[in-house]
């Protein structure tokens, strides 16, 4: 499997969750693990370009697929990805635990729908839980990200 453009072998143990593989075997700890049963959305990454929750996938299932994690959105020292930039500008994060999952979900949302309505934004982020920032500023960040993404 390729993660952020680099090839990695699948783990030998088939019960290794993709979330644990990304964090513990590959060492990319930007993907956070919250609930481990698909509720909180913290572990969202892009699988072949579409957001999925990696706590609900076995690592062996990712063989032959391309994964983008939060680390793959912008290289160190380079400009932030527009969605990261928007979260920064709009105070879309406080403690930051849920942020990588939100950002990856929003990257997927805007790829599917570059100009979402307020209702579509709410629907788009409804699968991600935040317990401290508050959704108002996250919502604003999504709308700002849509502006920044427009050509």
């Amino acid at each position: 499997m390729k993660i952020n453009g680099t090839s990695y072998p699948a783990p030998g143990d088939p019960r290794r969750l993709l979330s644990d593989h990304i964090r513990h075997d590959v060492g990319l700890t930007g993907t956070h693990v919250g609930c481990e049963h698909g509720v909180c959305g913290c572990c969202t990454v892009l699988l072949d370009g579409a957001p999925v929750r990696v706590c609900l996938m076995l690592a062996v299932q990712a063989e032959g697929h391309e994964i983008t994690t939060i680390e793959g959105l912008a290289a160190p020292g380079e400009a932030l990805h527009p969605v990261q930039q928007a979260f920064h500008e709009c105070h879309g994060l406080q403690c930051g635990f849920c942020t990588p999952g939100f950002v990856m979900s929003v990257v997927g949302l805007l790829r599917q729908n570059p100009s979402p309505t307020p209702e579509q934004v709410d629907e788009g982020i409804s699968g991600n839980l935040c317990r401290c920032t508050g959704y108002a500023s996250i919502r604003r960040a999504v709308h700002r990200a849509a502006e920044l993404t427009k050509p």
């Binding site: 979900s105 997927g108 699968g127």
Partner: peptide, 9 residues
């Protein structure tokens, strides 16, 4: 059904 991110899979 659930959320779009779940429905992707």
């Amino acid at each position: 059904v659930a959320h779009r991110v779940i429905r992707n899979r």
